[in-house]
């Protein structure tokens, strides 16, 4: 028996909204440590990795580890029926073929809605991701990151992220011209959430397909800050810290030939 209760259905909804454009079917692996999910897009350019630890739930029970294979679009249909502050309970039997989602309206205890989603058998590759030291880490407000990517995507299909000791620059170049946004490292005293934190041992510049970067900034509603971890010629690790877990992407760079 698996049963997990989230006080805010919106947390799970935001997670699923963030993966809907690139990932069709995903396995949500439930164990006594919580729920985790890892999925790679068909083109093998982006990998999403998510973990919601047991502390993320107001109650959690998982007698035996199980994988819940779900179609993201179907799951969203159900999650979108909920109000943001509904309490969500997810339930599955050990050898069942359904995930039950129950929504309780915190402002109207007389209303309870219940949905059953058919589970899929998803043959998913699990990747072994090597431990990596990153030589450049930029941490910035996720809304700022989202705005930069949205603005620059209009100018080109590819965006370069250039991290140096004194700042980070995002650049796009395309048919209509070019554009860049530079952020200097700063610390807004008393406003930690707005600071631009830059830790660079060695300057790094990596280029990415802007379509995939756009996907990584859809998770902005999940966390106020995002960190971009880079090292020459390897995938960028983009991570949002959740209250009890994380939501992260690995994105393969464009490499000059």
């Amino acid at each position: 028996m698996f049963e997990a209760k989230l006080n805010e259905a919106s947390v799970f909804k935001k997670i699923v909204e963030s993966v809907k454009d690139g990932f069709k079917n995903c396995n949500f692996d439930c164990s006594e440590e919580g729920i985790s999910m890892e999925s790679m897009d068909d083109a093998h350019i982006a990998l999403v990795s998510m973990k919601l630890g047991v502390e993320a739930f107001s109650s959690y029970r998982c007698d035996r580890s199980i994988s819940l294979g779900l179609n993201i679009e179907s799951l969203l249909k159900v999650l979108r029926t909920a109000n943001n502050n509904d309490v969500l309970t997810m339930r599955a039997e050990d050898d069942g073929d359904l995930l039950t989602l129950v929504f309780e309206d915190s402002s109207n205890p007389d209303r309870i809605s219940e949905y059953n989603l058919k589970l899929l058998n998803i043959d998913q590759e699990h990747m072994s991701i090597p431990e990596q030291e990153y030589t450049a880490t930029v941490t910035l407000p996720s809304s700022e990151y989202q705005r930069i990517i949205r603005d620059l995507t209009q100018l080109g299909d590819s965006i370069t992220i250039d991290a140096a000791k004194d700042g980070v620059r995002f650049t796009a170049e395309g048919d209509i011209g070019s554009g860049s946004v530079s952020l200097k490292a700063n610390t807004n005293v008393g406003e930690d959430e707005k600071s631009i934190d830059i830790a660079v041992e060695e300057p790094v510049a990596l280029g990415f397909n802007s379509k995939y970067l756009t996907q990584t900034c859809k998770a902005a509603p999940l966390a106020p800050r995002v960190s971009l971890n880079m090292c020459k010629r390897i995938p960028i690790f983009i991570s949002y810290k959740l209250q009890a877990g994380h939501f992260s992407f690995f994105l393969a760079p464009q490499i000059s030939e």
Binding site: L47, E125, M127, S128, P235, Q254, E257
Partner: peptide, 14 residues
């Protein structure tokens, strides 16, 4: 000219 790399160049399947 740059080319798109694949995650499979960096990660291995388990």
């Amino acid at each position: 000219k740059s080319a798109q790399s694949s995650l499979l160049n960096f990660f291995s399947k388990t």
